[in-house]
Design a binder for these strands. Structure first.
Lengths: 250, 250
DNA sequence: CGAGCTTTTGAATTCCTTCAAGACTCGTGG
DNA sequence: CCACGAGTCTTGAAGGAATTCAAAAGCTCG
């Protein structure tokens, strides 16, 4: 199925959070226009504002063009759990597609630009572009794996290692997604956000960060995350190596 | 897109964990045979044994015919996090499809019968049965929502409510999936399993269950879960009401 | 330049885990 | 049929981990 590929095009747009499609190449017959049908009117969302709220009927779907977003859920007790961090190229809001009401609140960590994707685009994709549909499906599964790992982290790993693993997961995604990132990059998350993502209080998030800094693994200062000792951090976090993606069945 | 549906068929098989397709009806043109192409050789797995292990290359995909399965991840420290409970009708092992290596360990909570689904079946589904592919996609998104809720539970909800919400989530799934279930049904999970699923120790799981029993919400005895006060349990757990699924875009 | 958000630290408290030990259950083999 | 052992359930007690409370200092943006 792979062998007949002659002309290829490289995409730089990722589909669904955390899945970068840069490495994937499409048969030319698929055409870049597959993606075009998925773009709609643009929308701006400035830092701290919301794209949609949990419980809202018929939420839109977005393709994040620039900036960082995060998705979160608020408990009846008023606590917030951040479930996903979205980087440019991510498809945002997909989980709610199978529901009548938005499953998550989507908020902007920085100023953002998004395309609003018409629902109809997906119907077209599934009817007429099976390869694209299959890739969308794979990226949804990839996202499930990410959530499974996050769940394991939050449920079973102590705070400092948890913070280490979480920072690493973002670091990895940013490195693939964004050009010119070295050991240091802008991380637009407050310590409150880090706590809400890893399931700990702000105070404890701060202490976890301090320990990581003191041990020389990584430090977060003025919105910049610097990884001082990458191998050490990986060993300390004990996070499983990401295995490569397999697309053979498509 | 919906209007031209004349003859319908009702399926009783669910696709992907937690998503029951009983309520969905297919256009007759889709044919039940769409499902046939997804069934392969059967395999038995007796209680306590494993269908596949985390890290194993090229794991199989399964359709669970009877029995209960669970998927889990083991941390470097040796702790286990149960990520999903699978009921009959569930598609099991999908998250690993996008990886070269199994993301989860799949183990049998009871004696089980599964069909092994050839990978090729999915390629066929996406190429030739777009409606089926779209439904598979939706169920993957549904599963993401379930994971998001579980993550929120584990990260942000105190132990007793967490246990209550977890039991409720299983109760709901069992009620839709299995015929003849009333307020009482066999729950093949040990307290260790409940702890591993909700991110608490066995001892604490036991205490959480005791409190739920003492307050008259629900009790788990000899492998049977009995919900004594459903409305009370729902209120106590504070779990968000499941909104209906929307399939309009297909 | 001041208000509000964020970061940081200490101290007290609460929640949860670990350890330990006894009771119970269930399947197995004598 | 009973005894045994492994796994499960249950409870108490001690210790550890994370939260909450509180307060000060730093930052940022209008």
């Amino acid at each position: 199925m792979h062998d007949d590929i002659q002309e290829r095009r490289q995409f730089t747009v990722s589909i669904a959070s955390s899945v970068l499609f840069a490495g994937l190449q499409f048969h030319d017959g698929d055409r870049l226009s597959n993606f075009e049908l998925m773009s709609g009117p643009q929308r701006l969302c400035s830092k701290g504002h919301f794209l949609s709220h949990e419980g809202e009927p018929r939420p839109d779907l977005y393709l994040l063009r620039s900036g960082w977003l995060c998705c979160s859920i608020t408990t009846p007790a008023g606590d917030r759990q951040i479930t996903t961090i979205h980087l440019p190229g991510d498809l945002v809001g997909m989980p709610s597609i199978a529901r009548e009401v938005a499953a998550e609140t989507i908020s902007a960590l920085t100023d953002c630009v998004v395309d609003i994707i018409p629902l109809e685009a997906f119907a077209v994709a599934f009817r007429q572009h099976p390869r694209l549909a299959a890739l969308l499906y794979m990226s949804a599964q990839e996202e499930r794996v990410r959530l499974i790992h996050q769940l394991t982290l939050v449920g079973r790993v102590h705070s400092v290692k948890r913070m280490a693993a979480f920072l690493l997961s973002i670091y990895h995604r940013v490195r693939v997604n964004v050009a010119g990132v070295d050991d240091s990059f802008a991380l637009p998350l407050t310590q409150q956000d880090l706590g809400d993502a890893t399931g700990m209080s702000v105070v404890h998030a701060n202490r976890a960060l301090r320990i990581l800094r003191e041990r020389g693994y990584a430090s977060l200062q003025k919105g910049t995350l610097t990884v001082h000792d990458y191998p050490g951090l990986v060993t300390f976090a004990g996070s499983p190596a990401d295995s490569k993606r397999s697309t053979a069945w498509i």
